[in-house]
Design a protein around this nucleic acid. Structure first.
Lengths: 137, 137
DNA sequence: CTTACATCCGTACTTGGGTACGGAGTCAAC
DNA sequence: GTTGACTCCGTACCCAAGTACGGATGTAAG
């Protein structure tokens, strides 16, 4: 049933995940994605796993991670010595939690603005800048 | 008390917020930051408000927003017609909530990995890719 | 078996977000 | 009133993350 793998050409993979063919090839050059074996002068075939990987890259980028950071995260997914994994995970976890806090503050500030608006206030300001002033001195 | 404004030169502003002088000037060219009046051939002075604005820009960038999106967010902070503000806020709120979900999943996946490690497992994998598979079909 | 369309691969170009450079002006301290 | 550090401004350069180009090869349909 799930042996129906390897049916994707690069073009179909690209449209499936919503990126350019060149982007796939670019990720391969950057070692973010494997380059499937090429059957003697033939055409490479990709799996659903490859598609998931590209989607992950795109999602992580939306969250503000660089391709280099994403490279580390992907290594975690692949499995590795625990001590090393923990080291990487810890660094990223700290970052992720900091971003979560900022995003939560941004969320509530924006939600607040919308509520004020629906109350019928004509002109509004939205203290967004203040929302992200983390610098607790 | 708070009339002790405008004491920052561009260099002091830059070091205060931890960016390059050139970055400040770049943001001014991009209209993300006002260019304070220049007293007849003299030197521009910046306020704490300018510093907060630059910090906001940097924080928002970490959250994955582009300078163009940040430009919109800053307009909200400045106050505007409610209908227009609501429109902008709504778009960004949707985005922010989607990112929050992804980040939360990433957070719990990473936290989980760390816990498994501290339990003494030798080798671990971290289903990070799966964590961000949002595509609810 | 040829025609149309895709893949392959190398190289070149683009865009966003800065950095660096250099000559001229300013300002404070000696 | 000169020296040193800083500002001003324009222009040029840089890196990350793609995008585009184009000739050669592969492959499916008529």
């Amino acid at each position: 049933m799930d042996s129906q793998e390897s049916t994707l050409t690069i073009g179909r993979l690209a449209t499936a995940v919503g990126v350019n063919v060149e982007t796939i090839r670019f990720y391969q050059r950057k070692q973010l994605l494997r380059e499937p074996p090429r059957p003697l002068g033939g055409i490479r075939r990709y799996t659903e796993g490859d598609a998931a990987r590209v989607k992950f890259i795109k999602s992580a980028q939306r969250l503000g991670f660089s391709l280099e950071e994403i490279h580390h995260l992907l290594l975690l997914d692949e499995g590795m010595r625990c001590s090393k994994a923990a080291e990487i995970a810890e660094i990223h976890l700290t970052e992720v939690r900091a971003r979560l806090q900022d995003l939560e503050r941004m969320e509530s500030t924006l939600a607040n603005l919308l509520e004020k608006c629906s109350r019928g206030d004509k002109n509004v300001t939205c203290p967004l800048i203040a929302a992200l002033q983390t610098d607790v001195e």
